[in-house]
């Protein structure tokens, strides 16, 4: 995948994610509509590829305004990932040479890899995650399970123990997926399924769309590393 194709695919996926988020806000308060209606229009422009560099820049400014409006992220990590992707895309568009473009877009790929690896590292460092207790707590009393019925999963310690270790091992091994194209595609398939499960069980739908939007950066990055004989 060329750098141009990877950037374009990221823009399309990001546009879809922003359109979805913006539509959700249009039924809200007037002062939110003033922020999210322009965002929806810019998202559509990004999808069709109209003046993508300036659209990314405007979306970044709007993202900062939204951050200011809610005095922090509205949707935690999903909003932070959105701003990270937008910053990298904007820098890549306005970079003076291809080397700088690669650096900006490569930073996104690196952060995507770290998003899995560090999450796995902080979990495995915690005895509650290693014993499965942390995931039981998530189901038992956290604000995330989407129905009361799901809380019953907290009474299945063996299942949650296995789930905890599966998640931790997958997250920690994620960087090794870069070793080949096939292993990366398999890892991204598993990662997308993981986000899909989080969207279903915990209602974190925005995480699903925004993380998938960053995937083309790591596909391009893996090929970039391979072409240069780094892998």
């Amino acid at each position: 995948m060329s750098l141009y194709d990877a950037i374009r695919l990221t823009e399309i996926m990001l546009g879809i994610a922003f359109a979805q988020q913006s539509l959700e806000h249009l039924k809200s308060f007037t002062n939110e509509r003033w922020l999210f209606l322009p965002r929806l229009i810019l998202a559509v422009l990004l999808i069709i590829g109209f003046q993508a560099a300036w659209v990314c820049f405007l979306l970044l400014l709007l993202g900062i305004a939204i951050l200011h409006r809610f005095q922090g992220p509205y949707n935690g990590g999903a909003d932070r990932m959105s701003l990270l992707i937008l910053s990298c895309l904007t820098l890549a568009h306005f970079a003076p040479t291809e080397k700088w473009q690669e650096l900006a877009f490569g930073y996104l790929a690196l952060q995507l890899m770290l998003s899995y690896f560090i999450s796995g590292w902080v979990k495995i460092s915690n005895i509650d995650w290693r014993s499965g207790r942390a995931l039981r707590d998530v189901f038992q009393f956290s604000a995330y399970p989407v129905s009361e019925h799901l809380r019953a999963l907290s009474t299945s310690p063996r299942l949650l123990h296995a789930m905890s270790w599966s998640v931790m091992i997958f997250e920690l091994l994620f960087p090794f997926a870069l070793l080949s194209e096939i292993s990366l595609f398999i890892a991204l398939g598993i990662a997308a399924s993981f986000h899909l499960a989080n969207a279903c069980l915990f209602g974190l739908n925005r995480f699903f769309w925004i993380w998938v939007a960053a995937y083309s950066s790591i596909i391009w990055f893996q090929q970039w590393l391979q072409i240069r004989g780094i892998l």
Partner: peptide, 10 residues
């Protein structure tokens, strides 16, 4: 957002 910690559910 630019220098994320990625410490989800630690």
């Amino acid at each position: 957002a630019l220098l994320p910690s990625w410490r989800f559910f630690d």
